[in-house]
Design a protein around this nucleic acid. Sequence first.
RNA 1: GGAAGGGUGGCAGAGUGGUCGAUUGCGGCGGUCUUGAAAACCGCUGAGGUGAAAGCCUCCGGGGGUUCGAAUCCCUCCCCUUCCGCCA
Length: 424
Amino acid sequence: MLDIQKLRENPDWFQERLKRKKFATNLDEVLELDEARRKAVTEAESARASQNGANQEMASLQKGSPEFIAKIGEMKKLSAITKSLEGAAKDADEAFRAAYMKLPNVPSDESPDGRGDADNVEIRRSGHDHDSYTTARAHFDLPGIDKLLDFERGTKVAGAGFPFYRGDLARLVRVLIGSFLDHNGQRGYSEIAAPLVVNADSARATGQLPDKEGQMYSCREEELYLIPTAEVPVTNFYRNEIIPVADLPLKHSAYTPCFRREAGSWGADVRGLNRLHQFDKVEIVRWERPEDSEAAHLELLGDAEAILQALELPYRVLEICTGDMGFPHSRQFDLEVWAAGQKRWLEVSSCSNFTDFQARRANIRFRREEGAKPEFVHTLNGSSLAIPRVLAALLENGFDGESSVRLPEFLARPFGADSLKLPV
RNA sequence: GGAAGGGUGGCAGAGUGGUCGAUUGCGGCGGUCUUGAAAACCGCUGAGGUGAAAGCCUCCGGGGGUUCGAAUCCCUCCCCUUCCGCCA
């Protein structure tokens, strides 16, 4: 949610910024609905005030006395007026709220303009020369990979995009998850294990609803959604809470499977591990004071990058342009690894600052000092990292051309071997 | 899943139709007293909306209803506790 007071005071400031994003927004409509709502609420409240006043007078009258009887007649009239005005106020409020919730966050002034992913700006690159991977091969074409990564049975059991991982590959997935969590832990992110389903209030708070309704799996019997990312349950952990200022910044790291319907995005580049309906991801989430969030964002990006460096994977950092940015985002960086077999970049992380947008929806606040008015925190999060695409890059880049995949030192110890043998 | 009992301010716990946003206690903050602290005493102590302010309005788990008037009565949903059943 945007700050409605600021929106009223300076609609042009918002209009200018919102039109940089891809979402259609009608600020005038929202402002009109806001005005109508406030007018209706004021009327309803003054009606309620006079009714309350009459009620107080009535309370001091003798029950059953002529004055009492007369007062009831007056009260009935006041009550009818209040009821209808309050009904109108409620309708006006709902109409306003529905439109208001559809407004996306304003992009940061730092974010570059653009219309789509082609306009994202590469801000740095790190890792080996792409030409050095002379024996790389697409992970889905590796010899024997079908025995470790079983899409056919996954399709039989659940559907396309739900693979089985087997043997050492399943174990490697587990090692990746554990290593990422441990790495984040060393950087001050305390581990948290979260529910894999959330209710509608939670999905609204982080901005999945109403924007991405069709992208989440929902349950038939209950109003629950399978989480598309740990961001949703973890950010909502503090929903409707006032965080003691001494606890800020809060930093959590969570592993969860993520479920995405990916409706409409099933295209040519989805082979193998590139795009799945269920995938594992470790997420980091931070709650910050507003004045700290910009620096925290860069630090969080660095935390995610550090894992890619430890994995010795070539990667680049993209600053996401306003036209490619998500609904609740203010500023966003993506991390992409180079998958040398497919010769393409794979997005493995998205590191975002939501400023106070999610915090308003989720009502997550802090108090600067005793007695001060609660203020909204800033929320930030980033993938650290999405497992399948990291795995794809590891498999492709590490393939020795024969029957094994070299593993970086970072993984060799927990995995118990410095390479993964392919069952050729 | 069945039965019973509950959900009130940071916590405990009153309140069963009207002057109740709510008695009281604890905790917290401020003051008096004290060299300082404790004790004692006094005062303050939830969130939100609207407004320049005074004020006004809303919130007693959520939603709906009855009533001139609801924390209080009714319906419904959610949650908690205990017992039984089932179960990783």
